[in-house]
């Protein structure tokens, strides 16, 4: 096997299989945004610090600016676009709305994917567990208190209809 600068990659994103030729240097976040037009995943810092680009790869929350698209060949990926359905908002999204857990909204997609990752693995998190779960997500607007309350409410199923 010899190194290649471009490679065919097959990924399942939000339930749909995509096959594309991808340059090895392409970051996953740009693959999602520019090739698959899934622009809900944001780029904040591009250094792994802010978490705005968080997506779930094979059931694990990761920062998509810190992965190459070729690394996720064969993986199953969830992005923010997978949360809302025809039936309406995801309970986490509704809880964020109920609790004013967003202002400018820039951090929100990443914040929601970290929160989803938490609830996927821990249905009844403590406040401390919620805070630790969003430690890698920076929000410059809210002060986090309403975000923590929203995630706690979603975990308890206490969201408006």
């Amino acid at each position: 096997m010899e190194p290649v600068t471009s490679k065919r990659v097959a990924v399942t994103v939000n339930g749909a299989l995509h096959e594309r030729d991808v340059e090895a240097r392409r970051l996953l976040v740009h693959f999602l945004r520019d090739e698959l037009d899934l622009t809900g995943t944001h780029v904040g810092c591009d250094t792994g610090n802010c978490g705005a680009c968080t997506v779930i790869v094979d059931a694990k929350a990761v920062k998509s600016c810190m992965l190459l698209a070729v690394q996720v060949d064969g993986a199953t990926i969830e992005t923010i676009e997978s949360l809302a359905s025809d039936g309406g908002l995801h309970p986490l999204q509704q809880a964020f709305s109920d609790h004013h857990a967003l202002q400018c909204g820039y951090c929100t997609p990443g914040m929601l994917m970290s929160a989803k990752h938490l609830l996927d693995h821990n249905a009844e998190p403590t406040e401390n567990e919620i805070r630790r779960a969003i430690q890698g997500n920076i929000c410059r607007c809210t002060g986090y208190v309403n975000i923590v309350e929203a995630i706690a409410a979603a975990a308890k199923g206490e969201v408006s209809a």
Partner: peptide
């Protein structure tokens, strides 16, 4: 950020990785 062009290989064995 667009990275500089780079080659990529994903070997399945340690000997292959060491060779690359």
């Amino acid at each position: 950020m667009l990275l500089s062009e780079v080659g990529y290989a994903r070997p399945a064995a340690v000997e292959e990785a060491v060779r690359l």
